Amino acid sequence: MNVLVTGVAGFIGFHVARLLLQRGDTVVGIDNVNDYYDRNLKRSRLALLELIAGKDKDAGAFHFIEADIADSAAVDDAFGRLPFDRVIHLAAQAGIRYSLENPRAYMQSNLVGFTHILEACRDHEIAHLVYASTSSVYGANTSMPFKEEHRADHPLQFYAATKRANELMAHSYSHLFDLPTTGLRFFTVYGPWGRPDMALFRFVDRIYKGETIEVYNYGDHFRDFTYIDDIVTGILLATDNIARPDPAWDSANPNPATSHKPYRLFNIGCGSPVKLSEYIGVIEKCLNKKANARYLPRQPGDVHGTFADCSRLQDAFGYQPSISVELGVSRYIEWYLDYYVKRMELQTYLLR
């Protein structure tokens, strides 16, 4: 297939594009490569995608466009490159904490940018739009595990509010223009090539260097940590199966996860939440180093816990997460040591 992947230089976008290429699809990727975090990491991801497409005779072709989805002309240009069979929209301003400081960045990328994607999908009659949402939309809900049928009307951060808005915007396009859309609520994604602003990198990096880590909510909260390979598997399962109207949808008792139009929502998580203190313990074991921890109260916008019910995705497509936290963290640390530590040692050696 020809697939457009937005946010292709990002953590999840990179892994999705890599798997698409490896199975022979042609990928056009768009990303503004902004400085929200280390641009070198983003460039390294892109270089690896170019390498896969260039060296593996069975791989698909890769084309990269450096542009911002908040620029409607750039989005129109991207959609004009090929007749796309699928659009996987992963570009967004990420991060919960940053939304407290710079909400306008979320407005531009997550609301304006998403509108441009919807309009382009409509104009080019895209067969299926799959887009990233987040477990953060569940907000103040404490009924667990989280189910797509639960209401998501009380977000605790502006970031979550913009992602919930994306779900509602998508439904309007599914309703008005019969655009098939699938929203995917990701639960705490981690793994190799992950973002350096996320907790796993900060914990691993500081524990490895013997520095103090900051542990919020005194390590008492829990997350449904989901390894990147399981996330990508779920994304492609949903992408390959186009959204259809739900014949059982009842307007008198509406299910928020489906519709009378080609629209649906899925959780993608592990389904096995882990307490933060236990997660840190796994990191300590893998590094064979003890953490120096500074325990602090919960931060504004943080939720106490997340726990995904993935039964809808399992029933629909056989999704089954398979990577344990112990295995996933060990794989991440192996990558960290190779990408960061060896590179730093080489730079130090060359500067002597």
Rank of each mutant, 00 (worst) to 15 (best):
I333G: 00
E119N: 11
S311R: 11
R43P: 01
Y131P: 07
V325W: 06
D35R: 13
V130A: 02
E101I: 11
H171V: 08
V16F: 00
F158V: 15
V204Y: 06
V341K: 13
A9Y: 10
S172V: 10
R81S: 12
S172P: 06
H175G: 01
S135K: 05
E119I: 08
L156N: 06
V329Y: 09
Y339P: 01
G139R: 04
Y218Q: 13
L4A: 08
N241F: 00
Q320S: 13
L350H: 04
A70V: 15
M144A: 05
R244K: 11
A67V: 08
L200M: 14
I213P: 07
R104T: 10
V274T: 15
W335G: 01
D230L: 01
L49C: 02
M1P: 09
P247W: 10
A53N: 04
G95L: 10
L265E: 10
E50L: 05
F201S: 07
V137I: 15
F222V: 11
G191F: 06
L200V: 09
F225W: 14
R202V: 13
V274Y: 11
P245S: 14
S251G: 14
D153M: 08
L327A: 14
V3E: 04
Y218P: 07
L346R: 14
N34T: 12
G24A: 10
T6K: 00
S272P: 03
T212N: 05
L237S: 09
E50K: 00
Y263W: 11
S251M: 06
N253R: 06
F64Y: 04
M344E: 12
E148N: 07
